[in-house]
Write a protein that binds this DNA or RNA. Structure first.
Lengths: 382, 382
DNA sequence: CTGTTAGCGCATTCAG
DNA sequence: CTGAATGCGCTAACAG
C-alpha cells in the first residue's frame, strides 16, 4: 500500500506541480505535518522537519496560493492601484507602499487604470475577486470608482485612498496638504515682488477641482492680488481624469507670453507642466527667472536638472506610502470596523534657480540630496 | 426544506461574500446552472438566465477567483515584472502588454524588483504561487533570476523576457536592436565631422555588458576612429543591476570637460544620462551642439522638451510589448512545448537639436508626433 | 508531537 | 437544457 502510493504520487510530481500530499507521501508523514513544516506552525520534531524540508527542496515544491487562500480565507497579497505608471508620484508611492508591506510579509501587485474608468473598474474587481488582503488606491476620484470602493468596503475589504481631497464613507485616507504647498509657493513669488502671477495647468472651468489651485488663489487674494481669467491657462478638457503634461505647459506658456500684458511669474500645476512652460519661455527668448519666474509642483527628479533648476513644491511621497501601508495593515490585522481615519502631511517648498538667482555657483549646490532631491531612482532602462 | 435553505444561505450572504451556492439557493436552481450563467457556457434557458442574473446583480456577487483557479487549474491573470516603475521604458512596455492582454480577457498584475535580486525572486515566486497564466519579465539578467525562470519554465509556466541580450533555454524573447541603434547614432555623429566621441554611462570595465556600447565601439572602429579609455565615462560600479541616472551623466560630463583634450561629441547610454550631461555642459558654459554634440538613447518624453531637444534613439517599446503579449498568449493557449521563439525589432534614430542646428525655427517643429514623441503619457499626478 | 476529518467555492464529468 | 457528484490543494479543528 505504501508502495502504491509512492509510485503514483512520484509520477504525478514529475509531470506538473507537486502538491503537499505528494511531499507527505514521499516523507511517509501526514499532509498536515508537511503543512506545519511549511508554515512553521505547531510542533514538529526537528528530525521530521528536516526530512520533510529536504523533500520540499528537492522537488522544488511551491505551495499553491490559490488553495491556501481558499481554505484560510485570507491572503498575503495587497493590491495597489495607480493611474499611470509613468507618473513619478505614483511610482514612488507604490514603491514605498510595497516596501512597507514587504517587511510585514505581504506581496504587492500593482495595476494601472491608464486614465480609463473601465480599466479602473476591471482592476479593482480583479483585486477583489482574488480576495487580496487590502487595496491601496491612488487614482483620481471618479463616481464609478467611488461606488466600487464603497461596495468593496461594505464587503469588508480594507481600503485606503491616497492623495484625494476626500474619501468615500468608511474609507481611510492619507494625503498631503497641497493647498498649503501652493500657498507657500505663491507667497514666495509675491515676496520676490511678483504681482501678476499666472496659473498653468487647467482652464478656469476645470482648475477648481485641485486644492493646489485654491491655495494659489487664496494666497493671491490674501495679498490683495487678483487673478484675471486670462492668467489661468491650460487645456480645457482634460485628457483622462486629471492630467497635464509638458505639451500642455508649452502651449499655455506660449499663449500667456503673447498676451498684451504677460505675467511675470508662473505657478504651474505640476512639474511636467512647468518644464513645458520653461521650454516655451526659452524658445521665445524669455529668460528665467529674469523675465519670468516659474514654480512647479511635485519635485520630480529632473526638476533639479533643468536650466535653471526648477523651484517646486515637494510632497512627502514615501511617507504617504508608509502611512497608507500602516493604515492598511491596521485594518487587515484587526480593526475591520474601527472608525475611519484620515491623515494629512505637510508639503515643502524647494527654492531653486527658476525663481531666484543664487548668489554664487548655481550648479553643484542646487543638486545635493539636502536640497530635496527625491530618494527614488530616476534611472532609465539600459 | 427549501425554506430552511433559503433562510440559512440568505443570512450567510448578508454577512460576507455570497457564493455561487447562495445564488443557486435563492434562485431555486442547482449551483451548476448559476455557474453556466456566469461563464456563459452550456445551455441555459433565457428565462432562467435572467432570473439568475437578477439575483447575481442584486447580491453584487463576485466569483471567487481563488476557487475558480483552483478548480479549473488555470487563471486569467498574467504577471509583469519590471525593474523599476520609474523607468519610462518599463512603464510604456508594461502598459502595452497590459493593453494587449486586456483585449484577450486577461488581467495583468505588475511587480517591481527595485533592483534587488531578493525582491526579484520574491516577485517571481508570488506570481508562480498564484499560478498566473504567464509571466512577462523585463528585468536585467541575473544569475538567480535566470535560475528561477528556468525552473518555472520546466514546470510549464509560459514566460517571455523582454529587452535582454539572451534568453535562458526554452524561454521566448523579444528585444530591439540596440546595437544597430547605437551604430546609427554614432555614424550620425561621425557624418557631422566628429572624431573624438565619448561614451557616458559606464566604466571601461562595466560598459561591455550593453549591446549599445558595442554598437558605439564598432561604429567608431568601422570609421577608423579609436576610443581611448579616458573617453568612457561613468559610474564604476552600478547602482543595482544596470542603471545610470542624471547625476551619473552630470559627473561624467564634468570629468570629460576637464580633460586636456575633451571630446566634441557624446554618446550617452540613455536619455537620463544624456540629460545630466546636458546640464553639466550648460553649467560649464559649453554650448550644445556648437561646442559639443549629444546623443541619448530611449526617447523618453522629456527628451523632446530640453533645450536644445535631444537627439536620441527610439526603440519600438509598445511594439515590443505587443509582441511579448502575443508570444505569451500563444504559449498559454496551446503551445506549451513548442520551439523557443525570438524576435528583434529595429531602433530608430531621432535627430533633434542636440546634434544639429535646425535650419529654421527649432521649437514647434521638433515637437510633433511625427518626430517620434512616445505615445504614452508623461503627465504628473495632480 | 502527529494524524484524521472536513470543507473553503467552484467547474468538470457524467446522468438525466 | 438541467442537476448531482466529485475533487482541485490546502489548513482549522479536533483527536490521539
Amino acid at each position: 500500500m505504501r508502495e502504491g502510493n509512492d509510485v503514483k504520487t512520484t509520477a504525478r510530481a514529475n509531470q506538473r506541480h507537486p502538491t503537499l500530499v505528494d511531499i507527505a507521501a514521499l516523507a511517509n508523514v501526514a499532509p498536515m505535518t508537511v503543512s506545519r513544516v511549511i508554515n512553521g506552525s505547531g510542533y514538529v520534531s526537528l528530525k521530521m522537519r528536516e526530512k520533510v524540508q529536504r523533500i520540499i527542496d528537492k522537488l522544488e515544491y511551491h505551495p499553491n496560493a490559490l488553495a491556501r487562500g481558499l481554505k484560510s480565507q485570507r491572503s498575503h497579497v495587497i493590491g495597489i492601484l495607480v493611474p499611470d505608471i509613468l507618473n513619478p508620484f505614483a511610482a514612488e508611492l507604490a514603491g514605498s507602499i510595497q516596501e512597507a508591506m514587504l517587511v510585514r510579509g505581504y506581496t504587492a501587485f500593482l495595476s494601472t487604470t491608464e486614465q480609463s474608468t473601465k480599466r479602473e473598474h476591471a482592476a479593482l474587481s480583479a483585486f477583489f475577486d482574488h480576495r487580496v488582503a487590502g487595496i491601496a488606491v491612488a487614482t483620481v476620484e471618479t463616481a464609478s470608482g467611488n461606488e466600487a470602493l464603497e461596495r468593496f468596503t461594505r464587503r469588508g475589504m480594507p481600503i485606503v485612498v491616497v492623495g484625494r481631497n476626500a474619501a468615500p464613507v468608511g474609507i481611510d485616507r492619507v494625503t498631503a496638504d497641497h493647498w498649503q504647498g501652493a500657498y507657500d509657493a505663491v507667497e514666495h513669488l509675491i515676496s520676490l515682488g511678483h504681482k501678476r502671477i499666472a496659473y498653468i495647468g487647467g482652464s478656469p472651468r476645470t482648475a477648481g477641482r485641485l486644492r493646489r489651485f485654491h491655495g494659489f488663489l487664496e494666497a493671491m487674494h490674501a495679498h490683495g492680488l487678483g487673478v484675471p481669467e486670462e492668467l489661468i491657462a491650460g487645456p480645457n478638457h482634460e485628457s483622462g481624469p486629471g492630467y497635464s503634461k509638458q505639451a500642455d505647459g508649452y502651449e499655455a506658456m506660449k499663449r500667456l507670453l503673447s498676451l498684451p500684458h504677460p505675467p511675470t511669474a508662473i505657478f504651474a500645476r505640476n512639474d511636467f507642466t512647468a518644464l513645458g512652460a520653461m521650454s516655451a519661455a526659452r524658445d521665445s527668448g524669455v529668460s528665467i527667472p529674469g523675465d519670468i519666474a516659474i514654480v512647479g509642483f511635485d519635485n520630480v527628479p529632473q526638476s533639479a536638472f533643468t536650466t535653471p533648476p526648477l523651484t517646486t513644491v515637494a510632497q512627502p511621497t514615501a511617507q504617504q506610502g508608509r502611512e497608507a501601508a500602516a493604515m492598511l495593515l491596521d485594518r487587515i490585522e484587526g480593526g475591520a470596523d474601527r472608525e475611519q481615519r484620515e491623515i494629512c502631511l505637510e508639503c515643502q517648498l524647494i527654492v531653486r534657480g527658476s525663481t531666484v538667482v543664487p548668489a554664487v555657483m548655481p550648479a553643484a549646490r542646487d543638486r545635493g540630496q539636502a536640497q530635496g532631491l527625491p530618494a527614488t531612482s530616476d534611472g532609465a532602462h539600459a
